[in-house]
Amino acid sequence: MGGRSNRSSHQATEILKAFWQHEVSKPFIAFLGLFIVSAVLSPAFLTPYNQRVLALQTAPLALLAFGESMIILMGSIDLSPGSTMALAGTVAAITFVHYKQPLAIAFLAGIAIGALVGFINGLLVTKAKIPSFVATLAALVAGRGMVLILTGGQPIVGLRAFGVLTMDIGPLPTMVWLMFFFTVLNFFLLTYTRWGRYIYAIGGNEEAVRCSGINADLIKLMTFTLAGCYYAIAGLMMDARLEVAYPWTGWGAELDAIASSVLGGIQLTGGVGSPIGPFFGAYVLTLITNVLILMGVNPFYQWVVKGIVLVVAAIALTRGLRYVK
């Protein structure tokens, strides 16, 4: 009797240990903790409407965070997500409204532009050897400028048809399903493909990767391009949410994307972190803003509370590390 219960409790601790050692455990626990605290603090938090709103608000940010986290995993940084999403959203809207192309073509045009921006970022980093911080800063500034040139500063209206992204399929809107789809895709890509493993390897020890004959430049180029596609999809989602291509979409979103990645357990030094961590990071970031409004906290205090919550979440994430930079 005693032996068996001993063994089962032993098994339980093994499972718990395995979970705790998994990279995604800490972001998940930070997420779960904040979720429970929010539910306790505000009765409105758990309502279906609020959960739906949260999912809708998280979806574009999660896509940005997935792209950003891949770049950070390589030990680089990407400052262009916000501008890229706005540019992709603008180009998709122009293709649809001004050139009267079908919706699918408009979406593809937007994604292609995102890929192009990512590709250029990749070229600047690998061929021109400009540090990613500077290269993508250029993309951040120039991308927003192009949005303003293309739109003339005026939102592009007439995007009702983009509602395919916000309409419900079953219990949830399309874009929320898309977010889940990309969470799974990102997990699969980074965990089970050679490309994904190389991304981690480059962040871990790029010199070793290059010495072993792997074309690290090509991997970087591909990853920046894919990240651009992710940002573009986020841009299409914002178009759908606002039913216009708003030129100021994603202004400042690069910081949210980086924060989501870090809250998701992706280390800024590269090479470490779970592919699905950024999803939890994005959700946590959205949740904090949401619950503070639900509680009616004075907007000025909201900023302070947000800062404190971020620090607490970050403390939880870095337990067990010997040092950080």
Partner: peptide, 12 residues
């Protein structure tokens, strides 16, 4: 975009 997100939370 902020107007949308803030109002959504207020309506919640």
């Amino acid at each position: 975009d902020k107007g949308l997100e803030v109002m959504e939370s207020i309506l919640a």
